[in-house]
Design a protein around this nucleic acid. Sequence first.
DNA 1: GTATATTAC
DNA 2: TCCTAGTAATATACC
Length: 575
Amino acid sequence: MRTILFRYQTTGLNPHEVALVGIAFSYKKHEAYYVPIPENKAGAALIINDLKPALENPKSIKIGQNIKYDILVMQNHGVKVQGQLFDTMIAHYLLHPSKKHKMDTMAETELNYSPVAIETLIGKKGKKQRSMKDIAPEKVKEYAGEDADITMQLKHTLYKQLKNEDLLKLAEEIEFPLIQVLADMEAAGIYMNPSTLSSFEKELEANIEKTVSKIYDIAGETFNIASPKQLGIILFEKLKVSDKPKLTKTKQYSTSEQELSKLKGKHEIINLILSFRSNSKLLSTYVKALPLLISKKTGRIHTSYNQAVASTGRLSSTNPNLQNIPIRTAEGKRIRKAFEPADQNHILLAADYSQIELRLIAHLSKDQAMLAAFNNNEDIHTATAAKIYEIPEKEVSREMRSNAKSANFGIIYGISAFGLSENLGISRSEAKQLIDGYFKTYPAVKDYMKANVDFARKHTYVETIFGRKRYLKDINSANSMVRSAAERNAINAPVQGTAADIIKIAMIKCAILLKENNLKTKMLLQVHDELVFDVPKEELKKVKILISEAMEHSAQLSVKLIVETGTGQNWLDAH
DNA sequence: GTATATTAC
DNA sequence: TCCTAGTAATATACC
């Protein structure tokens, strides 16, 4: 049996808060049914109760567009959707990772059909837009039925295409099973202690106020420091802090952190501007914004993972983005400290892959020197420096290690002498020498990079170990800049993408293991190479081993995968 | 909506 | 000499 479920929201797009207006079903193409759900709780519960067995039947396949949303909405109505999933949005993402995956456009490109827009029903976006619950069910029926039918039709064509492109395994074994794992993570949420941030908020505000008045004093006038345009004029025309200011592509003065850092010693105002910038960023993006996203219902923060945006296969996180919580600076660390376990009986466990992308380069290139460095458990950056500079590891200076580290990262990004020189603040010829030394050290890495670019030129795509593709239409472009960018993508995508595949496999394995062992531990966050768990203290010993082994054995490579774990009463201390 | 800047991996 | 290091999200200014 095939089931398609559909949903309507009243209070917006947040699946944790919306009320269900109705569900549309389709079992086969060109046929659909609509079940309106009454507003009153008792009436709704009666109907949902009737639908529950079908949705919880583990033997039927559930098809939908962005099913994670439906699963979360149903979960809030007491229905635990089970069974195999097929998501048309994700299927299309696997086929065309760099395109958009909205249902209306897919209907046009895949089915040559233009569906009725939701706006014809509820009006255009804005204050006047009506809620779905205010539309007569007879009208909703037509819209919802069409929607369900289109999803069913899309499923059929996308399934065939996945099969033809050898993407079915990736879809059925990784992406579709991951949907439920992500839904559970989002539903769990993470606890954030608002009092940790409220004291920090006052400190930051006082600090910013002081900095602002100092900047006005030095500038001799008041202006909007947050406006790059106004700031540029003050810095480069009035105060003349640089002889040849760098311009942005729109010919404005560049006031980027990178450019201002170069001018640090030139003028006392620079450090004040940098301090203003970093404090304002912390205040507006994190300290003020995060507490507003604490759910009134659960008291926790529920991020949303997007499984269909990043062209390489990575996840992304929104509302809020919990994948870019600060960690590098002392001030930033205070934000990470606010994320805590559920209660005194729990502890946060963070497990992250050590150097997964470089390890993948070692595996993919089969470079003997790099493989040996990893398999001997050496510090890869120190080992790289020793080889490049032809000295024993003991004699590697901090600067040499730092150069080697930048070169290692550069390789992952598709290195260029210009990019490396900008990153390290050295000349382009010095960067060139460093790169030459690097390729002499790891010759197979150079061959691997070239092989990837050649493959891309021939096939106009590159792929990960697990067959995830990324199309590179510009790989043969006549424009050298456009072409070079595609070449860097050809090098980066298989590496970043394989790392994404591996952690997704690990997440599915972890979820299964936690369930099989009847553990109460919950997976909360994924940050590209890291997983964060909320662990009852009595489970810690067992869970730590279970998780790290599952992660380390998610792929069989010619290089060992190493997972480092940490625990703590907050996310910072768990590192 | 686009540009600029900053945060993370 | 031009111009370029990979992947994201969010906040603010400015049109």
